[in-house]
Design a protein around this nucleic acid. Structure first.
Lengths: 230, 230
DNA sequence: GTCTATACGCCGATAGAC
DNA sequence: GTCTATCGGCGTATAGAC
């Protein structure tokens, strides 16, 4: 049964997670304690403004433990991100393969839903997921490029292939731009959760995802105005 | 006559700008030297990872001069950003007011073009503009929120008003979400310039803006699926 | 008004004791 | 596997020279 647990208290702010795994509730191994603390602090303050000292202190471990387990601050950042994103992307591929085999005809809408459903489920368990994914696109490219390519390279290619099968009239190059714009809308939503002036909660986030699906579908499936240049 | 000038050489990389102002070519005042150097370094490495020492050294001024002129690192960041964005936003309002008065009927396309034309012109003069605007959305909110509200609050409201006049069937709340998604696509384009795998040049940037206009127009003008909740 | 010199506490990283 | 000590570099601030 999923329930909400307090991870720790830092500067009078509480940090939470939702889990059904007893190991998560009171992590016994040092790696997990460091990852949990780092996730909260990277999300809150960004990579460069978060010190390993602050992470070690929040996690209740020695400073040198961060280097022992993750080699460097960069390595820790990549590990935090991978732990968050890998399960989402695995679920995406499972869903996409499933609907590719079962749905006739396959629609752009279904493809998009297989992309966003695993994300929404992950956000339900851990409300830091949007901000964490937002962060990776926010940090300088020198830090994030290798991480982004490793975690998203395969899945971006797979989704563009699926979309090109669903939208055969849109040239590949045009489709990759449209996919790029969709990712941009998504990242912006993840980073800011809601338009300026709206307070952001889980339900406004869901409502935003829902509206973004409409927006992305309209943009992706628009008639092609350009000539192919073969 | 616009021409390209080398600003300075840092770690074997050259930083440029395009200008027709003699004062820009060899800036004599310390403020400008600091602003130029800071712009390059903030774009390249991000806010937190750029040291005032590196800025002062690149600008050829004393470390303490940065505090004398800009009060703090935050103040310097805000000044760099304001110098870049203020002229663009002034031009946007001029254009928007012009077409609002002269065009019958006013179209969503025209409104969007008045938003992007001043940006494209600024990028032609200074190729760091996209990355610089991208950066402000990438830094932690505690740094950027006051800056974003001051520089973009008024213009975002003005454009949403213009769009709501052009698209009277779309409820205000729905329109503000769609505008939010458009800004997201734009920021993503500014930050990454082109889809992964495409090298980014000025002409690919222009082509991206052009395609994004189509994408945004399709999303903004899509028929409304939702009920008004009055 | 403009700029220099200097100081303080915190940073990532590492070497080596246990 | 954990911890202490330590290094050079950092952001920031300020006192005071010109």
């Amino acid at each position: 049964m999923l329930a909400l647990y307090t991870l720790f208290d830092l500067n009078d702010r509480l940090f939470y997670m939702m889990t059904d795994n007893a190991e998560d509730i009171a992590p016994t191994n040092t790696q997990t304690k460091i990852l949990d603390a780092a996730e909260c602090l990277f999300v809150e303050y960004g990579y460069a403004a978060t010190s390993l000292r602050a992470i070690a202190s929040a996690a209740g471990v020695n400073l040198a433990a961060t280097h022992y387990y993750f080699g460097s601050k960069k390595g820790l950042f990549a590990s935090v991100f991978r732990r968050c994103v890998q399960p989402i992307n695995e679920e995406r591929l499972l869903l996409l393969n499933k609907i590719t085999e079962s749905e006739r005809p396959l629609t752009a809408r279904s493809v998009l839903e297989s992309f966003f459903t695993p994300l929404v489920e992950a956000v339900y368990k851990n409300h830091r997921v949007p901000a964490l994914i937002g962060r990776i696109y926010a940090e300088p490219a020198s830090l994030t490029k290798p991480i982004l390519e490793q975690e998203f390279g395969k899945i971006a290619a797979r989704y563009q292939l699926a979309l090109s099968e669903v939208l055969p009239d849109v040239p590949t190059e045009e489709l990759s731009w449209r996919f790029h714009f969709m990712v941009g809308s998504m990242i912006h939503l993840l980073q800011f959760n809601a338009p300026l002036g709206t307070e952001s909660t889980y339900s406004t986030f869901i409502s935003g995802i829902d509206r973004m699906l409409d927006y992305a579908e309209a943009g992706l499936t628009q008639p092609n105005k350009r000539q192919r240049h073969d």
